[in-house]
Protein backbone atom coordinates (compact mmCIF):
# COMPACT_ATOMS: atom_id res chain seq x y z
CA UNK A 1 0.00 0.00 0.00
CA UNK A 2 1.27 3.45 -0.88
CA UNK A 3 2.76 5.32 2.04
CA UNK A 4 3.21 9.02 2.24
CA UNK A 5 5.42 11.15 4.50
CA UNK A 6 3.65 13.89 6.41
CA UNK A 7 4.74 16.44 8.99
CA UNK A 8 2.71 18.17 11.63
CA UNK A 9 3.09 19.62 15.09
CA UNK A 10 1.66 17.53 17.92
CA UNK A 11 1.31 19.25 21.25
CA UNK A 12 4.01 21.72 20.23
CA UNK A 13 6.47 19.10 19.02
CA UNK A 14 7.36 18.35 15.38
CA UNK A 15 6.36 14.94 14.15
CA UNK A 16 7.16 13.28 10.81
CA UNK A 17 5.53 9.97 9.98
CA UNK A 18 4.64 7.81 7.02
CA UNK A 19 0.93 7.27 6.68
CA UNK A 20 -1.00 4.87 4.52
CA UNK A 21 -3.34 5.97 1.80
CA UNK A 22 -6.77 6.39 3.33
CA UNK A 23 -5.49 6.12 6.89
CA UNK A 24 -7.32 8.33 9.31
CA UNK A 25 -5.66 10.74 11.70
CA UNK A 26 -6.81 8.84 14.79
CA UNK A 27 -5.06 5.70 13.61
CA UNK A 28 -1.92 7.61 12.63
CA UNK A 29 -1.69 9.33 16.02
CA UNK A 30 -2.24 6.09 17.89
CA UNK A 31 -0.12 3.77 15.76
CA UNK A 32 2.58 5.80 14.01
CA UNK A 33 3.14 8.46 16.67
CA UNK A 34 2.21 6.40 19.73
CA UNK A 35 -0.14 8.99 21.26
CA UNK A 36 -2.97 6.76 22.47
CA UNK A 37 -4.83 9.52 24.29
CA UNK A 38 -7.44 9.93 21.54
CA UNK A 39 -9.73 6.89 21.58
CA UNK A 40 -11.64 4.93 19.00
CA UNK A 41 -15.31 4.81 19.93
CA UNK A 42 -17.26 4.40 16.71
CA UNK A 43 -15.18 5.24 13.65
CA UNK A 44 -18.14 7.10 12.23
CA UNK A 45 -17.85 10.50 13.86
CA UNK A 46 -20.82 9.87 16.13
CA UNK A 47 -19.32 9.52 19.62
CA UNK A 48 -16.56 12.11 20.00
CA UNK A 49 -14.03 9.84 21.77
CA UNK A 50 -11.42 10.65 19.11
CA UNK A 51 -11.79 14.45 19.32
CA UNK A 52 -8.52 16.36 18.89
CA UNK A 53 -7.86 20.00 18.11
CA UNK A 54 -6.52 20.74 14.65
CA UNK A 55 -5.30 24.34 14.37
CA UNK A 56 -7.47 25.07 17.38
CA UNK A 57 -10.67 23.56 16.00
CA UNK A 58 -12.23 20.40 17.43
CA UNK A 59 -12.03 17.62 14.85
CA UNK A 60 -13.17 14.02 14.87
CA UNK A 61 -9.85 12.38 14.09
CA UNK A 62 -11.52 9.13 12.99
CA UNK A 63 -13.09 11.00 10.07
CA UNK A 64 -10.06 13.05 9.08
CA UNK A 65 -7.54 11.70 6.60
CA UNK A 66 -4.11 11.64 8.18
CA UNK A 67 -2.53 13.20 5.11
CA UNK A 68 -4.78 16.22 5.43
CA UNK A 69 -3.01 17.01 8.71
CA UNK A 70 0.11 17.99 6.76
CA UNK A 71 1.47 21.16 8.31
CA UNK A 72 -1.26 21.38 10.93
CA UNK A 73 -0.89 21.99 14.62
CA UNK A 74 -2.62 19.23 16.56
CA UNK A 75 -3.47 19.14 20.25
CA UNK A 76 -4.43 16.04 22.20
CA UNK A 77 -5.12 15.31 25.85
CA UNK A 78 -1.61 13.89 26.22
CA UNK A 79 -0.28 17.43 25.75
CA UNK A 80 -2.86 19.26 27.80
CA UNK A 81 -0.92 19.46 31.05
CA UNK A 82 2.17 21.63 31.30
CA UNK A 83 4.14 21.69 34.53
CA UNK A 84 0.73 21.59 36.18
CA UNK A 85 -2.59 20.14 35.16
CA UNK A 86 -4.69 22.28 32.84
CA UNK A 87 -7.61 23.85 34.73
CA UNK A 88 -9.96 21.57 32.80
CA UNK A 89 -8.06 18.52 34.01
CA UNK A 90 -8.05 19.88 37.55
CA UNK A 91 -11.79 20.48 37.35
CA UNK A 92 -12.43 16.99 35.94
CA UNK A 93 -10.37 15.51 38.79
CA UNK A 94 -12.02 17.58 41.52
CA UNK A 95 -15.49 17.18 40.07
CA UNK A 96 -15.31 13.41 39.47
CA UNK A 97 -16.06 13.86 35.80
CA UNK A 98 -14.51 10.56 34.68
CA UNK A 99 -15.57 7.04 35.53
CA UNK A 100 -14.15 4.48 33.10
CA UNK A 101 -12.05 7.24 31.53
CA UNK A 102 -12.55 6.17 27.95
CA UNK A 103 -14.53 9.19 26.73
CA UNK A 104 -12.52 11.58 28.91
CA UNK A 105 -9.88 12.59 26.37
CA UNK A 106 -12.49 13.52 23.79
CA UNK A 107 -14.56 15.37 26.38
CA UNK A 108 -11.54 17.37 27.50
CA UNK A 109 -10.68 18.39 23.94
CA UNK A 110 -14.24 19.39 23.10
CA UNK A 111 -14.33 21.38 26.32
CA UNK A 112 -11.01 23.04 25.58
CA UNK A 113 -12.21 24.07 22.13
CA UNK A 114 -15.26 25.66 23.74
CA UNK A 115 -13.38 27.54 26.44
CA UNK A 116 -10.71 28.71 24.02
CA UNK A 117 -13.32 30.55 21.99
CA UNK A 118 -15.77 31.30 24.77
CA UNK A 119 -14.12 31.59 28.20
CA UNK A 120 -17.41 32.12 30.04
CA UNK A 121 -19.97 29.77 28.52
CA UNK A 122 -23.48 29.28 29.82
CA UNK A 123 -24.57 25.82 30.95
CA UNK A 124 -26.51 25.49 27.73
CA UNK A 125 -23.44 26.29 25.66
CA UNK A 126 -21.46 23.66 27.55
CA UNK A 127 -24.15 21.06 26.93
CA UNK A 128 -24.17 22.02 23.26
CA UNK A 129 -20.38 21.78 23.01
CA UNK A 130 -20.26 18.22 24.37
CA UNK A 131 -23.46 16.92 22.83
CA UNK A 132 -21.34 15.16 20.20
CA UNK A 133 -19.41 13.30 22.88
CA UNK A 134 -21.05 10.18 24.32
CA UNK A 135 -20.36 9.17 27.90
CA UNK A 136 -21.99 5.91 29.02
CA UNK A 137 -20.94 6.16 32.68
CA UNK A 138 -21.62 9.53 34.26
CA UNK A 139 -24.98 10.85 33.08
CA UNK A 140 -23.00 13.98 32.00
CA UNK A 141 -23.86 16.21 34.94
CA UNK A 142 -20.42 16.04 36.60
CA UNK A 143 -18.78 16.71 33.23
CA UNK A 144 -20.94 19.77 32.58
CA UNK A 145 -20.27 21.04 36.11
CA UNK A 146 -16.54 20.45 35.72
CA UNK A 147 -16.36 22.44 32.49
CA UNK A 148 -18.25 25.33 34.09
CA UNK A 149 -15.91 25.06 37.07
CA UNK A 150 -12.88 25.18 34.79
CA UNK A 151 -14.30 28.26 33.08
CA UNK A 152 -14.73 29.91 36.47
CA UNK A 153 -11.09 29.07 37.21
CA UNK A 154 -10.03 30.90 34.06
CA UNK A 155 -9.28 27.92 31.83
CA UNK A 156 -10.33 29.77 28.67
CA UNK A 157 -8.31 32.87 29.41
CA UNK A 158 -5.24 30.78 30.18
CA UNK A 159 -5.20 28.91 26.93
CA UNK A 160 -6.54 31.69 24.70
Amino acid sequence: MARKPIQFRLNGKDEAVFVEEGQNLLDALRRQVGDTSPKYGCGQGTCGACTVLVDGEPRLSCLMLAESAEGASIETTAGLAGAELHPLQRAFLDGFAAQCGYCTSGMLMSAKALLDRNPSPTREQVVDAISGNICRCTGYEPIIDAILDAAARGAGRRSA
Binding site: S37, P38, A81, A98
Partner: peptide
Protein backbone atom coordinates in the same frame (compact mmCIF):
# COMPACT_ATOMS: atom_id res chain seq x y z
CA UNK B 1 -10.93 12.18 44.81
CA UNK B 2 -10.16 9.23 42.64
CA UNK B 3 -6.68 7.78 42.41
CA UNK B 4 -7.26 6.49 38.87
CA UNK B 5 -8.30 9.85 37.44
CA UNK B 6 -4.75 11.17 37.24
CA UNK B 7 -4.07 8.80 34.35
CA UNK B 8 -7.47 9.20 32.72
CA UNK B 9 -7.36 13.01 32.55
CA UNK B 10 -3.83 13.01 31.16
CA UNK B 11 -4.53 10.47 28.44
CA UNK B 12 -2.39 7.85 30.15
CA UNK B 13 -5.06 5.24 30.75
CA UNK B 14 -3.92 1.93 29.31
CA UNK B 15 -6.75 0.09 27.63
Amino acid sequence: KRVEDQRFITGKGRY
